[in-house]
């Protein structure tokens, strides 16, 4: 049974949330990198924290190596599920080229989190186009102009060191949670609810690792 104090506490918290305008989070990557799972975990965690949440994903032919984008918006009331140009508070790019492709979605003073990892698209594999060499510098330059913050992670390597490179999405999830200032929540419980028990340990560690950035 809830005590009056607990109710008051909850009401206060709700009040704080109402004051906060809705936030927009853009996840970009390549089919098969685990962006959609990370988005699902984030959305579920945000719902459990009492936010109105909308999440939109485009994954038409993404299994076949295409770009994948998921958009998450949360706040007291969310209308459009889509993020417009310069509207993303946080962008997390699972791949460097995708970071460059979507960086103009970043809001002034927003945070861009980049996995320092390359997946060559077909035109590069075929030698028709070169994979841009100086992407990190380009990203840094752009983010600086936006007075934003750039965080570069070796999520792929870090996850591999923890046991499996596929857990890179949880490293990046940790970094996003940190960037949004939402660490004060039982995220690991949500992560576990989406994964079979044998993967719990690895993914918890990967998430913790991401939180340290």
């Amino acid at each position: 049974m809830e005590t009056a104090m607990m109710q008051q506490d909850k009401a206060n918290k709700d009040e704080i949330k109402k004051e906060t305008a809705s936030k927009a989070l853009l996840l970009v990557g390549v089919g098969g990198q685990g962006t959609i799972l990370a988005s699902k975990i984030l959305s579920e965690g945000l719902v459990q924290q009492g936010y109105d949440v909308k999440m939109s994903e485009i994954h038409g032919m993404s299994q076949r190596g295409g770009s994948v984008t998921t958009q998450i918006k949360f706040g007291p009331k969310v209308y459009s599920p889509l993020i417009g140009p310069q509207e993303a508070d946080v962008i997390v790019a699972f791949e460097k080229l995708e970071a460059a492709r979507y960086m103009t979605q970043l809001k002034k003073m927003g945070t861009l989190i980049v996995n320092d990892y390359e997946i060559y698209p077909l035109p590069v594999l075929l030698g028709q186009q070169a994979y841009p060499e100086n992407l990190l510098a380009v990203l840094a330059d752009y983010v600086e102009k936006q007075a934003g913050q750039l965080k570069v992670l070796q999520a792929h390597t870090l996850a591999a060191e923890l046991g499996n490179a596929r857990a890179q999405n949880m490293v990046l999830l940790g970094a996003v949670v940190k960037a949004l200032g939402l660490e004060d929540f039982a995220w690991e419980e949500v992560i576990k609810s989406f994964l079979p028990p044998k993967l719990h340990d690895l993914n918890s560690k990967a998430f913790q690792c991401g939180l340290s950035f």
Binding site: G66, G84, M103, P121, P123, Y131, P132
Partner: peptide
């Protein structure tokens, strides 16, 4: 303001990522 700025991505002429046969 439309919030549209000249996209640096366009100047970079980034390689596209078309769907491919697996």
């Amino acid at each position: 303001a439309a919030g549209l700025v000249a996209a640096p991505g366009q100047e970079l002429s980034l390689p596209g990522r078309p769907p491919v046969m697996c």
